[in-house]
Write a protein that binds this DNA or RNA. Sequence first.
DNA 1: CTGGGGAGGGGGCCC
DNA 2: CGGGCCCCCTCCCCA
Length: 512
Amino acid sequence: MADCLVFHTQIASIMEVLANAAVAEICKLVDDDYAVFRLEITQSRKENRALRRKLLELKVARERAERTTQERVLASRPSVKILDRYRGMARGEGHLTGGQRSFVKPVGHNTWRDDQPITVDEGSGTSTQHVIMVESADAEAAGPGVKLERSEGEEDPRHSRDTQTRVAAEPHVATKDPPTIAPAPPRTRHRITEVSGTQNAVLKSETDTDTLTVTHRLLHTGSDHKSDPERLGKGPLRYPPAPGTEYLPVFHQSQRMVHSRGDGDALDTGGDDPSCSYSTEMDPGNISLGLETQTDLSREDWNQYNSGLYSEGSLDKKGEGLVIDEVTVKVEGDAPLTWNVDKTHLGEGYSQGRDFLDYRESLETNPNVTTHSPLHTVRDRESVSTSMGPSDSHNHVLFDQVLNSKGQRAKGRGGGATSGNSKEKRFLCMFCNKGFSCLQKVEIHQRVHTGEKPYSCMQCHMRFAEAGNLKRHQRVHTGEKPFGCTQCHMRFAQAGHLKRHQRVHTGEKSYS
DNA sequence: CTGGGGAGGGGGCCC
DNA sequence: CGGGCCCCCTCCCCA
């Protein structure tokens, strides 16, 4: 027993010695490797320093060359705006970080599209901008106020994808009509960031204004929208929010056409309200320039224009366009909303984008309907209400109405695709070919197809395609019943209802 | 029968 | 004088 104990003790001692030896060996190995590693690191750092120095020298040389080139371009092509970071710095407009680069608006494009590949006058070649910053010219100078966001993997300043564009006083896009450009209100800063870096990325934008908070959310993709024209372009425009009224036409912005105020026309009234002075364009390559001149079309050109749109095929790629479907507008103060949005540029949001797409599909497959591929001018400048969003069932209703009952009703009223001989109806609906006597009529009518409802009730968020219907709807909330029966005490909110009611007294049957 | 909304057309006003 | 815009009326449908 004693021997056994001694034996165990000896074994324990030996084990301990062996363990210590092993630990020591391991430590030695680690130390050796660490030394080697440190040596390598040191060498790498030296190499990095050398490369950095070299890079800096190259950069300086290249930038000099760039400036020379850009100035030359500017001089020879006034319509092309060069966004030169150095110049911005010189003006104290911004703070530049990373490699300074200059972006030259692609020649031949009148609108700057953020998603458009941007020609980068840089040795590394063309780069697509994914993170966008749009900042008004008078944002505080530089530095701290300017946020720079980058997509991943940008250790090297040369690969920085950030860029700054200045809008407002100096729209980031040169326009054909400089005189219409009004200085944007100061203190407006917009930041639009493509979060995921993909085409369908979620956009995050921030707008600093005193009166409006605008946020939009990209809900889905697949539709192309065009801005709505004039009426809203002038604000709730043409539907002024009289005291006590609750009208609040709001805008859905098409992600595809959200524009920066830098776009020419968009500036013409922009000075009044910074709230809409930003925008983004998301759909690469599908913009039809023709759209931008829609409202300028003469009547004679209208239908031709429509046909042009059909053949444009800008929307052919279903799913590429997309839709920012929700715009939340917060209005503070009593100042009337003045959405000075360029009707030809703002993608009027289109709250029922899917409706439209489906509808378009129906059109294209329905032999009774024009088979054009309507590039519609879906305009949705609208709305705050999310509860009114279209449901699938709504879609079906819409299609049914469009393709069936409504068409019949139109016929019954002397409408119809080719009806309307009483007056010269030169404006044809691009969807159903129905003729109207004036542009506005057809624009309103087309809302039947597009689902656009620019007029929103502040109290219940119901939306309407026509101002008059909204006004009539308001009586539901006010309880106003202006139409009283002369033979009884019944009162009605609608004249038609009074008329119908009076049949009760006259005994006239309302049906045959 | 009533309430509410969709949509077309007419007329007035303004540019 | 013509065109655009706005308002209103009206008819119709649906719940």
